[in-house]
Write a protein that binds this DNA or RNA. Structure first.
Length: 363
DNA sequence: AATACGTGGCA
DNA sequence: TTGCCAAGTAT
């Protein structure tokens, strides 16, 4: 690789890429600012998430938390509510705690040096590089999936891009390629090429400003790159969601643990089933009977079931609706009765929203 | 180094 | 329906 990176080639790469970018880049909300906090928010939202999905979330998030101070002092519940539906919710929790850290430790000034920036919660090598280059014009690489796809095709790099270490290979090349004075446009241009031209399935090489430099194009092997290990199939898990009402039409909900999957989100109590064959109604009755013998609950099983696929899990959620006629539940700190109307104020993950939709709860 | 961590779009 | 894909980070 290094042998191709002579000065002439580097200059050509930069010129063609930047010229194309100036002419063809999209007008995105976060491209209208250089406020490091706004760049930060956008970069975190864009992690593993497509631009079209992010735009409305970004607008609302910035409008509700226009400065780091407002995000820092907001209740986590509300931050999660603003993130609801975006996925990878640890991003939201880490962003808020990262912002709190910057407010307290750096007097609300996003660090301009890589070491301090990387120490901030939720800021990894990509996000640090993006903030440094886009907000502060520093010549630092920002290697995401787009950049790895584009460069792997141009330079025939066949390292497995699912391995974290592979990122460093691309960073090394980029330190030679980044123009000292236009790191922001350069980094965004590389990602923009990846998103609009050098697409995973159907690259539009006829429109690519770098096509004349592209070794995979010369060979006709564009689709062999990037090299990527196949993903594992999501593991099946079965549950019963218990939608329990009391005589005043209030619903029982509980908060998920503060770590792990869907941390700190609310849900209808979820009972684990050993296998998909089990009778949901039986599981629920036995659970509440063990808990308290004096309860009188009318149960109805829903015939419909929710399936929801995460990156690594596939949930099969049976649904049982119950009305509590007599008796009192001993509620822990993580459970409470709330009105259907109040549900809207609480963050619920998508699988729970699907349950609501099936049992006719307006959310 | 390998795995956990969400969701929606599309072929 | 299934599989792949999208501006990664924490542990």
């Amino acid at each position: 690789m290094i042998d191709m990176l002579n000065a002439e080639m580097i200059t050509g790469f930069q010129e063609h890429l930047l010229h194309w970018y100036r002419k063809n880049h999209r007008d995105l909300p976060w491209r209208r600012t250089s406020n490091p906090y706004y760049i930060w928010v956008s970069e975190v939202m864009l992690q593993q998430t497509q631009v079209d999905t992010v735009i409305p979330y970004y607008e609302e998030f910035i409008s509700r938390f226009p400065t780091m101070h407002e995000l820092a002092r907001a209740p986590q519940e509300e931050v999660l509510k603003r993130w609801e539906g975006l996925g990878y919710y640890s991003r939201a929790r880490n962003l808020q705690s990262g912002v709190q850290e910057v407010v307290e430790k750096y007097n609300a000034k996003v660090p301009e040096n890589k070491k301090d920036l990387l120490s901030v919660k939720g800021v990894g090598p990509y996000t640090a590089g993006a903030i440094l280059s886009i907000a502060y014009q520093k010549p630092e690489p920002a290697v995401d999936g787009n950049v790895m796809r584009v460069l792997s095709r141009i330079f025939l790099i066949d390292e497995d891009i699912t391995k974290v270490k592979t990122r460093q290979t691309f960073e090394t090349i980029l330190y030679d390629l980044i123009p000292e004075m236009e790191a922001s446009a350069f980094n965004q241009a590389l990602m923009e090429i990846g998103a609009l031209i050098c697409k995973p399935k159907g690259p539009i090489c006829e429109e690519c400003p770098l096509a004349h430099l592209c070794r995979s194009k010369a060979e006709g092997t564009q689709l062999h790159y990037p090299v990527k290990k196949k993903k594992m199939k999501p593991k099946d898990e079965a549950f019963v969601a218990v939608v329990l009402k009391d005589t005043q039409e209030k619903l029982l909900i509980q908060k998920r643990p503060e770590k792990g999957l869907l941390a700190n989100f609310w849900e209808f109590p979820l009972l684990e089933m050993s296998d998909t064959q089990e009778d949901p109604l039986k599981v629920v009755k036995s659970y509440f009977n063990k808990k308290n013998h004096d309860l009188i609950i009318e149960w109805t099983k829903s015939e419909q079931t929710v399936t929801h696929t995460f990156s690594h899990l596939k949930w099969h959620v049976n649904i049982v609706v119950g009305t509590l006629r007599e008796g009192t539940l001993n509620l822990g700190k993580m459970s409470q009765w709330i009105s259907e109307k109040a549900l809207k104020e609480y963050p619920f993950p998508v699988p729970q929203q699907k349950v609501m939709s099936i049992v006719g709860i307006d959310y």
